[in-house]
Design a protein around this nucleic acid. Structure first.
Length: 856
RNA sequence: GCCGCGGUGGCGGAAUGGUAUACGCGUUGGACUUAAAAUCCAAUGGAGUUUUUACUCCGUGUGGGUUCGAGUCCCACCCGCGGCACCA
C-alpha cells in the first residue's frame, strides 16, 4: 500500500536520527580538509525566526551538507547574539529580567531552527550574554585598552532623547535612531572610543586577499572613505595661531577667497578677543548646536555662515589676505574642521560665495578654452582638472602636475604636507545601558595622581608603542592606563566583571547607565593600589560580542572558555579563517568592518593566525512580504516559518527559499509559488514509490541525469540555487515520462543531489530504496561525480539562419564539418525558398550551434 | 549629487555575442469524481495570414551604434532598488 508524502511523519524522525549519529559535529584537528561555514548568529528577539533567517541558513546548510559528502570536515555552528536593546526595553516594560526573556526567546528559536533540519553543530552553541562568554569580550577590550587603542573622549555624540543612549553613526539612519525612529540630537558625553581608524588602511588593503562579493568590497571602501590630498597651514595675521586645512585640490589654491571653519573649531575660542563681531559669532554657534545633525545636513542647499570680522588668514603661496568665516556646513571631525573656499572650482564654495558676495576667481581652465585663452564669467563652478591660470609660477601646469609641484613647494617651505583623510571615525564603544557587557575598568583617584605626576617624564614617542609597560612606585601601568590617567584595568584572573542584578533597567535621566544606582557594586577597590575606586558603569555596544563569536565556537570545542588564551591557538590555527560567511547586506558597514578590525588587532597581538577572519563573504537578498513591503507586524504581512513547516514541511520551505529567485536579490514572498515546490516534492515522492520506475535505464535518461548532476553541483558553488532546483525539476519531468526508468543506483545519485535541499525527504526515500538501517544515512554517502564521457552529446540541433534569422533546424552529428552542414542546410526545402535567386555572400558556421547564410 | 546593482510574458524569473521567455506560479481546456479539492494530460508573448498542414511580422525600459547575428558589447537618456551624502 502506497502512502502519500507526509512530511510530519518523516521530518522529526530523521532529525532525531541525525542527532544521534552526530553526523553534523565537527572534529577538531581531523585529517580531513577543514571547512568552516558561518552564518550571522541570530539575535533572539521576541518575534521569533524570520523567513529571512531561513534563507541565509538554508543556503549555507546546502553548502555544509554538500561539503560533508565531498569529504570535508565541516564546522557549521550556531549561537545567540543575546545582548541587545529590544530585550532591555521589553524588560523595562514588563519587569521581567532580561536574562529570563532571553532564555525564553532562545528556547523558541532553538525549536524553530531544529524543525528546519539545519545541520548545525549544536555541541558548540554559544551565548554572548553568558558570563563565561563575555569574560572574553571583556578580555579583548582590556587588550585594546592595554595597547592604547581604547581612549576616552568628551565628544558631541548622537544622542537619542527617547532611549537616552549615545549612538554610533552607524545606528543613525536619516537623522533618526534606527531602532526607535526618534530624531537624534547632539550631546556632549564622556565616551570610550576604539581606534578603528588606526586600521583604516589595512581594512582597505587586505580586501585584496579575500573573496567578498564585489559590492561588499566597494561598500566597505566607500565607508572608510580614504582620500589623498594636502594639508596646508594658513597663518593668522598678527597672531601666533594658524588654521590647518585639508584639500584634495591644492592646484586651486590661488583661487582661495576665504577660509571657513566649523563652529567647534578652537580658533574661535583662541581669537575671541580679536573677533569684532564675537556676539554674532557666538549666537550663530549656539544656533547651529541646537540643530540636530539631521537638520544640519537636510538644509544642504541653504548654506549659512558668519564672518569672523577682524580676522584674516594669509595664503602661503601669494601672501594674500583672506577673510575667515564660520559655517556649520563644515564638519568639525574631518580634515581639521576647516576648509579653503575656492568658489570657482567647487560647487559648494560657489554657492556660498554667491550668497555672501565673495570673490570668484578662476584659476583652472578647461583644456579647450585654455588653448583659445579666452577668459569668461563662470556660470557655475568648474570642478574638473584643467590648466592652471592666475597661479603665479605654477600657471600653465596641468592640475595633476600642479598638485605635485605645489605640495612639494609647501613641504619645502614648511607650510604643508601630503596628507590622507578618512571618513571613517573612531568607534564609540560605550553605551549607557544595563543589558550589555560591563566595561572592565575602575577609576582610581590615587592612581590618577601617580600617573599624572609621572606622565610628563615619558617621551611622546614612547606613548605610541603598543604593549609598553611603565613602572611607577612599584606598580606597573599599561599604555592604556598611562593614556587614560586614573582608569585601571581589572586583571585577567578577576574576569568576568559580572552584570549585577538591578531593580530598574531604566537609564538615568542624566544619561548614565542604570548600573550607577547600585552603590555596592560601583564602589570597589583599585586592583592595583587597593585604594577606594569606582567601577565604570557604561556597558559595551551590542556589536561587542559579535566581533569575535566565530572564535568562540572554536574555544567552546576545546574547553569551556577557560583562560589562558594560549590554550586555543592551535584550534584557531586549524580552523581559521572562516571559509564562507553569509549574512545580510545591512551588516556590511557595521558588523563586518568592526569584526575585521578586532580580528586584525588579535592578529597583531599574536592570538590568531591570519590577517582576515573571513575568506569569502556572500549576502542573501531580503525576503519581502507578499504585498512587496518589508515584513512587519504593523503591516500584518509577516510569514511565520512555523506555520509553513506545519502545513507543508521543512523541505518545502527550504526548497522554496532556494528557488524563489536569485540568492542575492530582494524577493517577494509568494505562498502560491511555494506550493509549486510542495508539488515538486510530492512528485518526487510518488515517482520513487512506484516500483515500475526502477529498472533498466535508457541512455537518454542517463545523459540527462549526469547533466543534472553537473548543473546542480556547479550552480550550488555559484550560489545559483534557483537554477539548481529548476534542473532538479526538469529531471523529474523527464523521468515522469512513460518508459523512463532508473536503476537503483542511478535513483540514488539523484536523491543525493536532492538531499542537500530536501534532506528529510531524500533520506526517507533513500532508506526505503536500499533498505538501510538507522545507523546509515544518505549524508554519509559520497557526493556524485558526473560522467564526463556520457554527457558528451553525439547529436545537436543545427540552427539554420538566413541573415541572422532562424529559418530552420535539423538534428545532425556533433562533429559535422562546415561543408557538410552547408550542403545539408542548402538542400532543406525552406532554405531553398529563401536562397533562390540570391547570392550567398558569406557563410558563418559555429560548431555545435548554427550555420548562417548572409545574402545582403 | 556620488558609488553600486537592475529594468525580459499576467506574475517570480532562465539565457558562455548564436533557437529569447528554461523552471515555477497563474489562466484556459480536458481526464478522474455525484461534486469539489487534490492529482494527471494539453495549451499558454503579441498581432496577423490560412479550410487545414502550415506560415509571416513584431517583441527583453527609450533612442542611436558595433556585428553575419545584440537581452547580452559601446554611447546617450528614462525609470526602479541598495549604499553614502555639505567628507573639502
Amino acid at each position: 500500500m502506497r502512502k502519500k508524502y507526509n512530511p510530519k511523519l518523516i521530518e522529526k524522525k530523521w532529525q532525531k536520527v541525525w542527532e544521534r549519529l552526530k553526523i553534523h559535529q565537527a572534529k577538531d584537528f581531523s585529517k580531513k580538509q577543514k571547512q568552516y561555514l558561518l552564518i550571522e548568529f541570530p539575535y533572539p528577539s521576541g518575534e521569533g525566526l524570520h523567513v529571512g533567517h531561513v534563507r541565509s541558513y538554508t543556503a549555507l546548510d546546502v553548502i555544509a551538507r554538500k561539503r560533508r559528502m565531498q569529504g570535508f570536515n565541516v564546522l557549521y555552528p550556531i549561537g545567540w547574539d543575546a545582548f541587545g536593546l529590544p530585550t532591555e526595553n521589553y524588560a523595562i516594560k514588563t519587569g521581567i529580567h532580561p536574562k529570563k526573556i532571553t532564555q525564553k526567546n532562545i528556547k523558541v528559536f532553538k525549536k524553530q531552527l531544529k524543525s528546519l533540519g539545519l545541520s548545525f553543530d549544536w555541541s558548540r552553541e554559544i551565548n554572548t550574554a553568558d558570563p563565561k562568554y563575555y569574560k572574553w569580550t571583556q578580555w579583548i577590550f582590556l587588550k585594546l585598552f592595554e595597547n592604547g587603542l581604547a581612549y576616552q573622549a568628551e565628544i558631541p555624540i548622537n544622542w537619542c532623547p527617547k532611549c537616552k543612549i549615545g549612538l554610533a553613526n552607524e545606528e543613525v539612519i536619516d537623522g533618526k535612531h534606527e531602532r526607535c525612529n526618534t530624531e537624534v540630537v547632539q550631546k556632549e558625553l564622556r565616551q570610550w572610543m576604539l581606534k578603528i581608524t588606526a586600521y583604516a588602511d589595512h581594512l582597505i588593503k587586505d580586501l585584496d586577499q579575500v573573496d567578498f562579493l564585489e559590492k561588499i568590497k566597494t561598500q566597505q571602501i566607500n565607508w572608510i572613505g580614504r582620500s589623498e590630498g594636502t594639508e596646508v597651514k594658513f597663518k593668522i595675521q598678527n597672531s601666533k595661531f594658524e588654521i590647518s586645512v585639508f584639500t584634495t585640490r591644492i592646484d586651486t589654491i590661488f583661487g582661495v577667497t576665504a577660509l571657513v571653519v566649523a563652529p567647534e573649531h578652537e580658533i574661535i575660542k583662541n581669537l575671541k578677543s580679536k573677533i569684532e563681531n564675537f556676539k554674532e559669532v557666538r549666537d550663530y554657534i549656539e544656533k547651529s548646536k541646537r540643530k540636530s545633525e539631521f537638520e544640519r545636513t537636510k538644509l544642504e542647499k541653504e548654506k549659512t555662515g558668519v564672518p569672523l570680522k577682524g580676522i584674516f588668514a594669509i595664503n602661503p603661496l601669494n601672501q594674500e589676505k583672506i577673510p575667515v568665516w564660520v559655517a556649520d556646513y563644515v564638519i568639525a571631525t574631518y580634515g581639521g574642521g576647516a576648509v579653503m573656499v575656492v568658489p570657482a572650482h567647487d560647487k559648494r564654495d560657489f554657492d556660498f560665495a554667491k550668497r555672501y558676495g565673495l570673490e570668484i576667481r578662476e584659476v583652472i581652465m578647461p583644456k579647450g578654452r585654455y588653448e583659445t585663452s579666452k577668459s569668461q564669467i563662470l556660470e557655475e563652478a568648474f570642478t574638473e582638472d584643467g590648466i592652471l591660470v592666475n597661479s603665479g609660477e605654477f600657471s600653465g601646469l596641468t592640475s595633476e602636475r600642479a598638485r605635485e609641484e605645489i605640495t612639494k613647494w609647501l613641504e619645502k617651505s614648511g607650510f604643508g604636507k601630503r596628507a590622507v583623510q578618512y571618513k571613517l571615525r573612531d568607534w564609540i564603544f560605550s553605551r549607557q545601558h544595563y543589558w550589555g557587557e560591563p566595561i572592565p575598568l575602575v577609576f582610581c583617584e590615587n592612581c590618577k595622581r601617580i600617573v599624572e605626576n609621572f606622565k610628563s617624564q615619558i617621551p611622546e614617542s614612547k606613548l605610541k608603542i603598543q604593549n609598553s609597560k611603565f613602572k611607577i612606585q612599584n606598580f606597573y601601568f599599561s599604555l592604556g592606563e598611562i593614556l587614560n590617567p586614573g582608569w585601571i584595568a581589572i586583571p585577567e584572573k578577576e574576569l568576568p566583571v559580572k552584570l549585577p542584578y538591578v531593580e530598574s533597567y531604566k537609564p538615568s535621566e542624566t544619561g548614565e547607565s542604570p548600573l550607577i544606582k547600585i552603590e555596592k557594586w560601583v564602589k570597589t577597590k583599585c586592583p592595583k593600589c587597593k585604594s577606594p575606586a569606582i567601577r565604570e558603569t557604561d556597558t559595551m555596544p551590542n556589536w561587542a560580542g559579535s566581533n569575535w563569536y566565530y572564535l568562540a565556537y572554536l574555544m567552546k570545542g576545546i574547553s569551556d572558555f577557560q583562560f589562558p588564551i594560549s590554550k586555543y591557538k592551535k584550534v584557531f590555527k586549524y580552523w581559521m579563517p572562516v571559509d564562507w560567511y553569509n549574512g545580510g547586506m545591512e551588516h556590511t558597514n557595521l558588523h563586518l568592518l568592526y569584526s575585521r578590525f578586532i580580528y586584525k588587532f588579535l592578529y597583531d597581538i599574536g592570538v590568531v593566525p591570519t590577517k582576515e577572519p573571513y575568506q569569502k563573504r556572500t549576502s542573501q537578498g531580503i525576503v519581502l512580504g507578499e504585498d512587496g513591503r518589508k515584513m512587519s507586524k504593523s503591516f500584518g504581512n509577516v510569514v511565520n516559518p512555523d506555520e509553513i513547516v506545519k502545513k507543508y514541511g521543512a523541505d518545502t520551505l527550504r526548497v522554496y527559499e532556494m528557488f524563489m529567485g536569485p540568492f542575492d536579490e530582494t524577493i517577494t514572498w509568494s505562498t502560491k509559488s511555494m506550493i509549486g515546490c510542495f508539488r515538486f516534492l510530492n512528485r518526487v515522492w510518488e515517482i520513487f514509490q512506484n516500483k515500475e520506475k526502477i529498472g533498466q535505464s535508457t541512455k537518454e535518461i542517463k545523459i540527462k541525469l549526469h547533466q543534472t548532476i553537473k548543473k546542480v553541483s556547479e550552480d550550488i558553488e555559484a550560489t545559483k540555487f534557483n537554477t539548481a532546483i529548476a534542473a532538479l525539476m526538469e529531471f523529474i519531468n523527464f523521468y515522469s515520462q512513460e518508459n523512463q526508468k532508473l536503476s537503483k543506483n542511478e535513483a540514488g545519485l539523484f536523491l543525493k543531489i536532492l538531499s542537500v535541499f530536501a534532506p528529510h525527504l531524500a533520506e526517507e526515500i533513500y532508506h526505503r530504496l536500499f533498505n538501510l538501517n538507522q545507523s546509515q544515512s544518505i549524508f554519509l554517502e559520497k557526493w556524485p561525480e558526473y560522467d564526463k564521457k556520457l554527457i558528451k552529446e553525439e547529436e545537436f540541433e543545427l540552427v539554420i539562419q538566413i541573415n541572422g534569422k532562424v529559418r530552420d533546424k535539423i538534428k545532425v552529428r556533433i562533429d559535422i564539418s562546415e561543408e557538410e552542414a552547408k550542403e545539408i542546410a542548402k538542400n532543406r526545402e525552406k532554405i531553398k525558398k529563401y536562397l533562390s535567386g540570391k547570392e550567398i555572400k558569406k557563410v558563418i558556421f559555429v560548431p555545435k550551434k548554427l550555420i548562417n547564410f548572409v545574402t545582403v
